[in-house]
Design a protein around this nucleic acid. Structure first.
Lengths: 123, 123
DNA sequence: GCGGGTAGGTGCCGCAAGCATATACTCATT
DNA sequence: AATGAGTATATGCTTGCGGCACCTACCCGC
């Protein structure tokens, strides 16, 4: 794993919504699947808090499910307004990606000038 | 201007360093040039506070300069350790861009399935 | 009965971000 | 000579996210 990314504020929320849209899951499972989006897996408490907040806002719903081995699980699924909320935030995240690409290439521009060796491609 | 981007925490700092590296400037000027990185220009106070913080950390230095028209300006320039700090945070921002691209394309994947009309190119 | 993996949760605090507000200089207008 | 607009720099206050620590409880193997 490279450097830890500097994620946007509240990025956890859309990530949870997207993952739940792909398939319902319980928190402990989401902890693992969230690694793909740059979340280290430490601080599961943060995720559980976010899940309860999302449920309070009606963006996800949950139901307890007994587990064969281990304690019961609270299975979460995204709701209709949850999907709406996801659709609404995506443009901002797209915009963020655009800005960051701009920043990086603008940074790379003068780095290439200063050290013409070990050139990083301009993507 | 599209939607306001959801910028990472502390993103203002590297932006200021990059802009000052491109050319020294005073705060009021930076406010304008920061628009390229998604900063709306409201809340200039935030920028000025950030500048003073950066100066306190030795990442930038400043000098007063009289203005032909209007009040005096505090001209900022990036220092050596400021550049080091910039180099150190860029990998994380690169990583963030990567993650966001991944998120967006993963989102687009099921959006294309649900509404096969109005297809967005897969970049 | 002890440790380790699974699963879900609360408490607390620092600090960035958001918003309002203050000061002061210059110039053009009334 | 006062008023307002544009330029320029700053402080005060509040909120809420994020980071860290900590707790409970279940199941299984040794």
């Amino acid at each position: 794993m490279p450097t830890e990314p500097a994620l946007p504020r509240n990025f956890l929320r859309p990530c949870v919504l997207l993952l739940l849209r792909e398939s319902p899951a319980h928190g402990y499972d989401l902890v693992e699947r969230l690694r793909a989006f740059g979340f280290s897996g430490e601080d599961p408490g943060r995720l559980y808090r976010t899940l309860r907040t999302l449920e309070g806002e009606g963006l996800v719903r949950s139901a307890w499910e007994p587990s064969a081995h281990g304690p019961d699980r609270r299975i979460y699924a995204v709701t209709g307004s949850g999907m709406e909320a996801l659709h609404q935030v995506v443009p901002a995240l797209r915009e963020t990606a655009r800005v960051l690409d701009g920043f990086v290439s603008r940074y790379a521009e003068f780095v290439d000038i200063e050290s013409p060796s070990s050139v990083s491609s301009s993507r």
